[in-house]
């Protein structure tokens, strides 16, 4: 099934600039270009999110030690 699409509004001067940018570039339309750029950006964001999750993986000993320290401070 074809994915549904939504309309996003962008400033007309920006649209005109994109038309200039994609001239002879292989993109069929400003929409194709915008989707390409946004997918690229979102991919980068996804990668950052994943590495952000990985950094929270501590060893059990590390977690125990940190919690003990925080408890001594009265924070936990």
């Amino acid at each position: 099934m074809k994915e549904t699409k939504v309309t996003v509004k962008i400033p007309r001067p920006l649209y005109r600039k994109i038309q200039l940018v994609i001239d002879n570039s292989g993109f069929n339309s400003p929409t194709d270009f915008i989707v390409f750029v946004l997918r690229d950006l979102i991919g980068e964001w996804d990668a950052n999110q994943k590495s952000g999750q990985e950094e929270e993986v501590f060893s059990a000993d590390e977690i125990r030690a940190v919690k003990e320290k925080l408890r001594n401070l009265g924070y936990l």
């Binding site: 950094e55 929270e56 590390e62 940190v66 919690k67 320290k69 925080l70 936990l76």
Partner: peptide, 11 residues
């Protein structure tokens, strides 16, 4: 930073 992150998560 690791420790403050644990703190915020647990709070």
């Amino acid at each position: 930073p690791k420790e403050t992150r644990v703190l915020f998560k647990h709070k």
